[in-house]
Structure formats: structure tokens, C-alpha cells
Write a protein that binds this DNA or RNA. Structure first.
Length: 535
RNA sequence: GUGGGCGUAGCUCAGUCGGUAGAGCACCAGGUUGUGGCCCUGGUGGUCGUGGGUUCAAAUCCCAUCGCUCACCCCA
């Protein structure tokens, strides 16, 4: 529409098309003024018709006055982008079919593990969200600007004080950043939940991050968490659940990398790195698989860590042989035992050993692998941490860990918890690349093509077919049969049900298999069986 | 936030001494009235991302701006 109008508008302004209302009415006022080909009378006519056009808002210029409503200009100039905002996506029917397939598997496996569903609002109070994800995370929170009076008040208060408005004054709500913090809020809020609360939650989260491959600003997480216990049973069960999901989806080559926050801290202490540099050291160490030992050493030094400490830390987190890229867990554990860790480090190490042995007979067992360099960005983890890796994806398919302090941050009671989060989009990206989807049908199976019958009778037959459990689309127009069949093909319907007067008179319908090009006439009330037979 | 690449039809792209836009696919209509995916003919659809500059003349040259994208950063 806008294109045609703009094209006509151009022709008008060039003088090669007549200036007729109402088309001319859609020529923006500014264009009319600029148009060299218009004489004063034409100009006045154009502006008058702009004025008379019914949908023009009040702020459009009066005749003879230069100015254009912003929305008006936007329509005319095709400036309205129809793409979804950067980092977000529309899910078209086939996309939904794939997502739903994966979500169905996740839900079923989670429920089989005894997890119960939870949904929480997209919007949370900033007081709930801030301070849980570290400084980087806080930066990535989407904030909701105050509305109306609250916004005016904030701006005015600052103006009265003669200072610029601070970010914190402009918003007190934001979009959730993950599903773990909302769960923690729910745990703190509701006392009547089961003592061991196992919940799953599949919902979108939002991060004001720079989008990249497999990385979005709006994406789905599929979380399982166990709250209310420090028992390693909780760790094993969440790992088992995600491992079972991935196996059911057809992944065979994933590893669940396993580490422990306290072990990491102990290693950093053992390398003589001060607490203030701990987080910087973690970020560098986490890149081991990407940039290698030398790369990490360089980065550690770059971040202000003494060369001797950097070298020592590398030694601690990488067992003996530098050529061995992925040593097995027992080798790693044996190496760590010899590192002279302090008491807390020893405890963490023992915890990891216990986890490995407890998980042995679960789906997670064969996939767990100790990775002393694994750090993970979120600051709320306190114990074991996990991350899922597959060979052909730079990022991870999911991650999680124990967060015994998070729920207590809401100031009610301390409740220990552990959780695991699968990243839906990452899974979809890999499944797409590896062509792991089964046949997924979208839309109707039967296209009702009708010819010389009354439209109402056609709709009636469609209803009867649907009553038999068939998925039926009715062709909307009177059209040649060939057109109808051609359209049926494009929708993915496998069978055309052809209804003409002769069929209707006999209470029958002609079913045509579009791919096999075979057809048969059946009683309308027996169509479902016939369709099943033809499939 | 830092650096590189790209913005022409719904999609994939051509258009490279500046001369007011093309192809393929897709879509629509025909090739006579209830049987399609091939073929043939015709058609719809583009302020060449946006704004400014140079020029008689800009998709093409210059500047700015926006958008997309890759790497870094960080993460699911």
C-alpha cells in the first residue's frame, strides 16, 4: 500500500500524474511544498485535500502550512520497519512446530522426574532483579520506563535539584533476566510450598545484550530446580533430567562439564591471587578451551595478575599433559588431590567425587566430566556448577548450579537450592544444523475444494469432516479446480476433498491424494477411514 | 562498548568509465466451462536503507545517519 502510494505521489510531484483526491491526499504536505512541478493552484488543491482526508490526525499542517505528522510521513516513506526488533524473532508456523516438539519432550521428561510447573510474570520489580547477576548482568537488564505522573515526577525532582536524572529514578521494574531469580522470589513469598520444591519453568527471558549467532535478546529457558535441600540427590536429579531430555532429542555427544565454586576459590587462593582479582581470574580461566593455556596466561597477566600466580593457576586447573585436551574425570580429580588445597577446597573436591559416583546409574552418569576451569558468569552460585557442551557449538546448550544463598537474599529464610537451565534456542540451532527433527506436519491434512455447490453446503461438509477428526481447510473462493489443487499443494495438505453437485447429491465426496495422484469416491461420513487408508 | 563487511522487487541477487532500474524464484491472470506440480504468454510489485552534498544528470562519487552482519566482550 505505502509503496503504491509513494510511487503515485512521486508521479504527482514530477507532474506525470494527475493530482486527484483522495490519492493526492496522501502526499505529505512537505512534499507538496517542495514539488517544483506544481503551480500555486495545484499546491492549494493538494493541501486542501490533505486537510480533508479523514484519517489525518489533528497535528497535520493546515492548508498552506508546512509540516507533516510523523506517523503520516512514516507511512509514506516506507520507514516503518516490519522486521522484529534486533535480537528478537517471529515464530512462523514451522518454527512453532519445531519449538513445540522440543518443548513437549522437555516437559514430559521433566514431569517424569517429578517436577511441577511454574510460571511467573515477564515483569519483575527491579529490587528483585538487581544485585543477583553481578555488575555485567545488572547492565543487561531491560528496564521499564516510569509511565505518566511517575515519569514527570522523576524528571521534575531532578530538574528542581538542578542535576541530570539518574537511571535509577526512571524505572523500578524490569523484564526478567532468567528464571532462577523469579523462582527464588516465589520460594521466599509462599510458605505453603512443599518442603522439597521441584519445579520446572519454560518461559522467555530478556537480556539487553548484543545479538549474535544463537544469541538473542528474547529467548526461552527451560529450567528445573530443586529447592529445600543440600542433598546431592538434588544435583543428580537435575543433571539426570537434562541429560534425559538431550538423549530423547537425539543428542549423543554432549558432555555435562562439572565444577565447584568453592574449588575454584581454593585454586585461586592456592595460586596466591587476592580475593579482589578473583572474578577477573575466573573470566580468564573460563576461556581455557577457547584460547588455550598460553592465551589464558596472557589474559590473566593482562588483567593484573602476577605472572607467577598466573602460571601456577594454569598448572592447577590443567592436569599434567598439555596435549591432552579432555582428560577423563578421574585423571583430573587425581591431579587436583595433589594440589595441596585448603580445607574448603578439599570439601568441594570430595563433593564432586560424590556427585560423580551418585550419578553413575542415571542418564547423566556417562556425560559428566570434571572441568576445573569452568567458571560461569552468574554470581549467585555457591556450590557445584554445570554447563552442557557439544562439539560444534561455541556456547553452551545450558548450565546451572547450586545457589544456597539466593533465596535468603529476599530476607525471609535461607533455603538451599540447585537448578539447571536448558537454552531452547541453542538446542534448536544445533538440531537444525544436524537435521535432527522428525517429520512435522503443519496445517490441515485435507483441503476441501468445492465447485458448483452452495458455499454454505461446502462449509457444512467441512464441519462433517472435522466431526470425524480430520484437520480440514476450506478453500475460500469460487475457483477452477486446478487452482484449488495447486493451492492445496502449497499448504502441505496431503489430500484434496473435491465436492461438486454430483457428489453432494449422492452424499459422497471425492478424495484425491495429491502426491500419489490417486482418487476415490467415498461416502462423506466415511471420509476419515478413507483418508487413513490413503495415507 | 571496540573494530571489519553489507544494505537494489516478497526471496536470492545482477547492475563496476555517473545517463531517471533488471534477472531467476515467488505471486496474479490467461493457454475456453470439474483435476494441479512441466511448458508458453502477459501482469502486479522498487522515493535502489534514510538524509544531505558534488553534477545538466547519482543505485553508481563524497559525507552523515540508521539497520543488518562477523569478530572481541559477555552469555543460554
Amino acid at each position: 500500500m505505502a509503496g503504491a502510494l509513494a510511487s503515485h505521489a512521486n508521479a504527482v510531484l514530477r507532474g506525470s500524474a494527475p493530482l486527484n483526491p483522495p490519492m493526492a491526499a496522501l502526499v505529505p504536505v512537505a512534499w507538496v511544498h517542495r514539488a517544483p512541478s506544481l503551480d500555486p493552484d495545484q499546491r492549494r488543491a493538494a493541501l486542501t485535500s490533505v486537510y480533508l482526508w479523514g484519517t489525518i490526525p489533528g497535528d497535520v499542517a493546515q492548508p498552506g502550512v508546512l509540516g507533516v505528522s510523523p506517523c503520516f510521513e512514516a507511512i509514506m516513506s516506507n520507514k516503518v520497519s516490519t522486521k522484529p526488533p534486533s535480537g528478537t524473532r517471529d515464530f512462523l508456523p514451522l518454527d512453532i512446530a519445531r519449538r513445540q516438539y522440543v518443548i513437549d519432550v522437555i516437559r514430559e521428561v521433566y514431569e517424569r522426574h517429578g517436577f511441577v510447573p511454574l510460571e511467573t510474570p515477564a515483569i519483575e520489580n527491579l529490587s528483585t532483579l538487581l544485585g543477583k547477576y553481578g555488575d555485567e548482568g545488572d547492565q543487561l537488564l531491560y528496564r521499564l520506563l516510569h509511565r505518566r505522573d511517575a515519569l514527570k515526577r522523576a524528571v521534575q525532582t531532578a530538574a528542581t535539584d538542578g542535576r541530570p536524572v539518574a537511571e535509577a529514578e526512571l524505572a523500578d521494574q524490569g523484564l526478567r533476566y532468567d528464571l532462577t531469580v523469579p523462582l527464588a522470589r516465589v520460594m521466599a513469598q509462599y510458605g505453603q510450598l512443599p518442603r522439597f520444591f521441584r519445579r520446572y519453568q519454560i518461559q522467555p527471558v530478556w537480556r539487553a545484550d548484543r545479538p549474535a549467532r544463537g544469541r538473542f535478546r528474547e529467548f526461552y529457558q527451560c529450567d528445573v530446580d530443586v529447592a529445600g535441600t543440600t542433598s546431592p540427590v538434588a544435583e543428580v536429579e537435575v543433571c539426570s533430567a537434562v541429560a534425559a531430555v538431550l538423549e530423547r532429542l537425539g543428542f549423543a555427544d554432549f558432555t555435562i562439564r562439572l565444577n565447584h565454586r568453592e574449588l575454584l576459590r581454593a585454586l585461586i587462593r592456592a595460586a596466591d591471587i587476592t580475593d579482589s582479582l578473583e572474578s577477573k581470574a575466573l573470566v580468564a580461566v573460563d576461556k581455557l578451551d577457547k584460547i588455550g593455556r598460553d592465551g589464558v596466561t596472557a589474559e590473566l597477566v593482562d588483567r593484573g595478575i602476577a605472572e607467577t600466580s598466573a602460571a601456577r593457576l594454569i598448572e592447577l586447573i590443567t592436569p599434567g599433559d598439555p596435549g591432552d585436551a579432555s582428560p577423563d574425570s578421574q585423571t583430573v580429580l587425581a591431579h587436583l588431590r595433589k594440589c595441596g588445597l585448603d580445607e574448603s577446597g578439599q570439601r568441594a573436591l570430595a563433593g564432586l567425587e560424590e556427585l560423580l559416583s551418585l550419578a553413575a546409574e542415571t542418564p547423566a552418569g556417562s556425560h559428566l566430566s570434571v572441568a576445573p576451569e569452568l567458571a560461569r558468569g552468574l554470581s549467585y552460585y555457591t556450590g557445584p556448577i554445570f554447563e552442557i557442551a557439544v562439539p560444534d557449538l561455541a556456547g553452551s546448550l545450558g548450565g546451572g548450579g547450586r545457589y544456597d544463598g539466593l533465596i535468603g537474599m529476599f530476607g525471609r529464610r535461607q533455603i538451599p537450592a540447585v537448578g539447571f537451565s536448558l537454552g531452547l534456542e541453542r538446542i534448536l540451532v544445533v538440531m537444525q544444523e544436524r537435521d535432527m527433527y522428525p517429520e512435522l506436519g503443519v496445517g490441515a491434512e485435507v483441503m476441501l475444494c468445492w465447485l458448483d455447490v452452495d458455499m454454505g453446503r461446502a462449509l457444512g461438509v467441512a464441519a462433517r469432516l472435522r466431526g470425524q477428526g480430520l484437520r480440514v481447510e476450506t478453500f475460500p473462493d469460487q475457483a477452477k479446480l486446478g487452482k484449488q489443487l495447486q493451492y492445496a499443494d502449497t499448504t502441505g495438505a496431503s489430500i484434496a476433498a473435491i465436492l461438486g453437485q454430483s457428489e453432494l447429491d449422492a452424499g459422497r465426496i471425492t478424495l484425491k491424494h495429491l502426491a500419489k495422484r490417486t482418487q476415490e469416491s467415498v461416502a462423506i461420513d466415511e471420509a476419515a477411514e478413507a483418508v487413513a487408508r490413503m495415507r
